[in-house]
Design a protein around this nucleic acid. Structure first.
Lengths: 346, 346
DNA sequence: ACGCTAAATGTAAAGGTTTACATTTTTGTA
DNA sequence: TACAAAAATGTAAACCTTTACATTTAGCGT
């Protein structure tokens, strides 16, 4: 049986209003009274009921964070970045994963409604705009890598186009021409942006981008593995594989190894995201650096900007640049032997 | 301005009780009335206020998960395992990290009180028992790798002793004698258990365990890196390093590489936990396998056992076994050259 | 048509807080 | 000492739901 503010008031010989006042530190209460009440609170181990408080205050001190998945280091870093900022404000995080399923997104959103003061939503695959319409307009929402042109929401999006373009250019500079990509889900915004960047770079350098070199994964390690196996079955396999995230690159590396090929001497491979372990895998993975934990931190910071009315009405739209991060999984192509091979094929 | 159950009742021409009844599906309501109400709810996009509901129901449909940290794949896997189970029950997770700081644990616990239906606490370093005393007795609590002998809580603990012992034996079998360890935090239960296992194995095999081979890290990658640098400064450095978790092993690998040493030919290294990336780093990391995501899942399953009264009163105490996972970061010692070295020293 | 029972619906209290407004106590001043 | 003003404290409404209990309506047999 939990004790309520009434019990405290009785025991301290004051009214509940006074107790409430010392609880909220706001109004002026005589020092002696305050001490007395504090003592009683301590003694009874009283803690205010958040539901009752939330009911009247319409504040929860929690932020909802809805991610597409919880596998791997990427999302863990986003959570970490978000949690760090949130903790500075005395807030907390409610996480959920949607598995890119509209039903699950809806369920999570419904759950969060009324339970959080703001929502950070990452949904690159499922267009969640319709689902967001049921939420009260007063609830700040930050969209992370979501497909939207709705100016009503704050948005943060990674420059997938630029990053992929730069990476593709780098591979072209190394002499690669048959560059395969492993994409993410079909309707996935991140994947589409990266694909756009890849195709742009290929075209610009007059290497006709072939659909036959575009293989569909789904951003999971296992899909990287399986797709790479497909790719290696081609009789004249590509000289480089560009996986659209590091997890798939890691899966691909496994497949390549199993095929007895060496990286990067037989085939080059690179990823996207630059998750922390990228530098430690073998060989260290060339990737497109994304400030992952900053993503979470930025989103939450934006939330608090809104919450503190500093920027109540105006929405912000942040475009996060990426940076090439060169390691040892890609290598200049051996032009001679490559020409050799090409002749064989021709 | 959010609409309440009263608005719905008015618009549907019924009382709030009837609306509440269709909302909770429990009582019998005439089919026609139900339809009418459902239509209005849909039209108004009404959603019940969780605070009001929580106030009267004393149920939140949320589980608190308090972890020591959010860095790295270990915790991310715990969260994933927990989230999976929790989602099956239509529940959600509130995560928080304590950074092994009693103040932060207390803050998180205070926040969770009244906001969650149960708490899963992982606190191997800080003894949180005192902090748990302020919580209502009715709140189910599952302790993950916590130091406690309080039979009132459910507990799940990993067999750190057995795992470390087995790993040490394996290294001894490979011919290693000077085996250094990188431990976790000083008062960390996991670290202590693993240390106990290491020492036991050494003693049993008549290799006097020397305190000079026990180096203190803190389970972070950077501490693994720095500690390994220390170790390599020894003029007759150990032939094997056993890091008490994989993150530190990864940090150590970096330090070893920088020193120009090859793994495992110059020095063997192994970790603990077997986080998913362990198999992908270079060289693939020999480690003690822990069913990480199962840990989160088990804890949450236990919570629901309690919540559904299936095992209301009796607490469960689970001991999770580990399994050696051999990969390529450890190698049989070259006995000749090793004896050589030993003679040099002697 | 009547009365009885069962089904459907309504009424009102309870849950624990905050806070505007009302009241009491304290303080300072003449 | 008495009075006004300021400070401290108290009262009660509001927040939104669920549910025990009360009331109305419907269904049935005679």
């Amino acid at each position: 049986m939990r004790s309520s503010i009434i019990d405290v008031a009785e025991k301290a010989g004051v009214s509940i209003a006074t107790v409430s006042r010392v609880l909220n530190g706001s109004d002026k209460v005589k020092a002696k009274t305050r001490e007395k009440i504090l003592a009683v609170i301590n003694e009874m181990k009283y803690a205010p009921n958040p539901a009752a408080r939330g009911l009247i205050m319409k504040k929860t001190e929690a932020i909802g964070l809805l991610l597409p998945d919880l596998h791997g280091e990427f999302f863990s870093e986003v959570i970490r970045g978000a949690d760090e900022v949130v903790q500075q404000h005395g807030y907390h995080i409610i996480v959920s994963s949607s598995h890119n399923d509209p039903k699950e997104i809806e369920a999570a959103l419904r759950f969060m409604r009324g339970r959080v003061d703001a929502i950070v939503l990452m949904s690159p695959q499922v267009n969640a705009e319709i689902l967001l319409e049921n939420l009260p307009k007063s609830l700040p929402i930050v969209l992370l890598n979501c497909r939207t042109d709705n100016k009503h929401f704050d948005t943060i999006v990674i420059d997938g186009y630029g990053g992929a373009r730069e990476m593709t250019n780098y591979l072209l500079d190394l002499g690669h021409r048959r560059i395969a990509v492993i994409t993410g889900g079909e309707t996935n915004l991140e994947s589409e942006e990266r694909l756009r960047g890849y195709r742009a770079a290929m075209s610009e350098r007059n290497v006709a981008p072939s659909r036959l070199l575009e293989f569909q994964g789904n951003f999971t390690e296992i899909s990287g593995y399986e797709t790479a196996r497909e790719i290696l079955k081609l009789k004249n396999h590509p000289t480089a594989i560009f996986a659209f995230n590091d997890s798939m690159a890691i899966g691909a590396i496994k497949a390549i190894r199993e095929e007895g090929l060496r990286i990067p001497s037989d085939i080059s491979i690179c990823g996207f995201d630059d998750i922390p372990v990228a530098r430690y895998i073998s060989p260290s993975l060339t990737s497109v650096h994304v400030p992952i934990s900053d993503l979470g931190a930025m989103a939450v910071n934006r939330v608090f900007d809104r919450l503190t009315k500093r920027s109540k009405d105006s929405t912000a739209h942040v475009f996060v640049p990426t940076k090439l991060c060169l390691r040892s999984s890609c290598k200049k192509i051996n032009t001679i032997s490559n020409l050799d091979k090409e002749e064989h094929v021709a």
